[in-house]
Amino acid sequence: MTAMTAALEFKNLTLGYDRHPAVHHLNGKVAEGTLLAVVGPNGAGKSTLLKGIVGALDPLEGEIDRNGEKREAIAYLPQLAEIDRSFPISVYDLVAMGLWRRAGLFGGIGRAQKESIEQAISVVGLDGFEARTIGTLSGGQMQRALFARLLLQDARLIVLDEPFAALDQNTIGDLSELITHWHGEGRTVITVLHDLELVRKRFPETLLLAREAVAWGKTPEVLTADNLAKARKMCEVFHPDAPVCEAAA
């Protein structure tokens, strides 16, 4: 790992809301091309860490080194609930948004790009759904459409927040196949997950988070009974009157 370049480096990173840390003094590197699962109990700071990585949340302390990559170049899939699915837009248009960085405000969508949109829709198994409005999709179909959009973003670093929440086995199988495929292409993928079986099966590296890194490394060494018990205990220590943290920077 040391010989490879780091796609991301956390340097004494503390992230949080209103001075209360949700991620506390995190240090470490994510090497280029890593397929990393981030696991931990609810409230462990997993989503917060992702928001920090994509630049949606500024650190309270420390920093994230993105190795010169612009935050706009990171493909980020937030949790599903944050999309307005009543908006009258077609699956095709939703997926086409993935071309934003290349097309921008006015850039034309040419023949090659139209083909890439159609191909992305086909890869996630939504052939024939192009003209449907997103309000008519099931949860699984919606997530497939969002994965098609991720495909078009063609990013070196892909960050996914609980992409498989409330999906059936078939959909999870297809979409995690895609993640594995991205890994094979040398992209860096960071995914928040709760299904430990899936993590053991498909993710070589894992970060077990409970505000601090409980363990970080090869998945079998991280997901031990001891570490998981420790993570549960360390979580949810929010205090309205917590003293100012004096830990060394």
Binding site: E72, A75, P78, I83, M97, W100, G104
Partner: peptide, 21 residues
């Protein structure tokens, strides 16, 4: 002029924030 970002901000503001300012 603002059609694309406006639609995007309506549907998925988090996505717009992640790809553009």
């Amino acid at each position: 002029v603002i059609w694309r970002p406006l639609v995007l901000e309506c549907v998925d503001p988090n996505f717009l924030r992640s790809v553009s300012r």
